[in-house]
Design a protein around this nucleic acid. Structure first.
Lengths: 209, 209
DNA sequence: ACCATAATGGCACCCGGTGCCGAAAGGAAG
DNA sequence: CTTCCTTTCGGCACCGGGTGCCATTATGGT
């Protein structure tokens, strides 16, 4: 089952039991490819498992659900964003810090852009994934809310930190939607613009600096 | 199957074929009651159908999914909100109009409060419903985005109207979460506060008036 | 060779959701 | 009352995501 030509990620230390047949990343590649070819709803978990040469049951040991197979290492990315926020100078205005963290969180090297576009197109356009995203974003919001709460001296579950977290998420999603509408457009620019709008508020007058 | 003692809603004109065995409202009451008693995930569609005295298959003629059974006449409420926004004076500042519309949209008479609390507790706390809500809220956002776009003279799918729509939704949801945390608290007050925060922006200085 | 450990994957099962189709219930016309 | 038309009902078979169970397989350590 494990083709010798594709050791999942070079086994460094000695291990104890049977080695995994594949890896999350490998599985995700197969999944994304199939979704791109046929559409999310037209691909079954069995299809993905077969493409990866594993059993259907085993797929669910790598990903809790079909939906999850699209999200890559979101938990890891999230950890990075938390660290960026933790390590930002205490003097920096809250919204500047959040804006920079979000822009940084979504920085990609050119090679990954096509994959990331595909991933995000699925998440934002396929209803099942759109719905599921809410559950994924919950942790993202928690990170933002905790940061905002610290800055405001309020508990993280108070109204204002929660509003800020929801609003930042919304701004980021809206920016992503713009980015998807035109190939080669500037994601960081949209994110920056959306979050600046949040910082200055939607009330009149719009304060032209 | 149709108990004579519960005519679904008084058949006014003459109809042609067989009359419905029940109504969406009736079905929703059964569903909410069961969800409250046993929890959303522990109630099957078959349970709800049985409680209402209809077949499982028939349930899906009244509601497209188990999730939908919780949302009452959301489409109708949405229509009302659109009308409120359409009929608001053109001179009123955009965020004032949105704030009043949202507060009005969520006004309840005392009798419905317990049901609405239950409904919203389910929507905001049960993962399956939390995820599904995103799809429901999409139309709500569209209403807000169209209004904002009209006021800003931009297309509804431009960045700023979309950010405003996402942010308003987030503010409303955050307000609801606060409301659920304490029995008898003031929903309208939370909504008002959250949307005012959006209007004035999160940037420093927070402008104390 | 033997054992502990960890991954695999088949199997049976649950549940939400759908297509199909005949049956039931009602009104209108003869 | 019988016939026809219309609409709802609901059983049945099926699909696909997801889970619990458990024997099997691969691997390192003794």
């Amino acid at each position: 089952m494990l083709k010798s030509s594709e050791s999942p990620s070079a086994e460094p230390p000695s291990r104890v039991g049977r080695r995994p047949s594949t890896s999350r990343a490998e599985l995700e590649r197969h999944a994304l490819r199939l979704f791109a070819e046929r559409g999310f709803d037209e691909v079954t978990v069995e299809d993905i498992a077969a493409a990866a040469g594993i059993g259907r049951r085993t797929f669910f040991r790598y990903y809790k659900s079909k939906n999850d197979a699209v999200w890559g290492d979101f938990a890891g990315e999230l950890r990075r964003m938390r660290e960026v926020l933790d390590g930002c100078p205490p003097g920096m205005p809250m919204m500047d810090a959040l804006r920079e963290a979000v822009v940084d969180f979504n920085r990609l090297d050119a090679a990954q852009i096509p994959w990331h576009r595909l991933r995000m197109r699925l998440i934002l356009e396929v209803p099942a994934l759109q719905a599921h995203s809410t559950l994924m974003y919950a942790e993202w919001r928690a990170v933002v809310a905790e940061f905002a709460a610290r800055r405001l001296g309020e508990p993280a579950d108070a109204l204002l930190p929660q509003v800020i977290a929801y609003a930042c998420l919304g701004a980021a999603v809206a920016a992503y939607e713009q980015w998807l509408r035109q190939d080669g457009s500037d994601l960081a620019g949209f994110l920056d613009e959306a979050l600046r709008a949040l910082a200055s508020g939607f009330g009149e007058p719009p304060r032209r600096d």
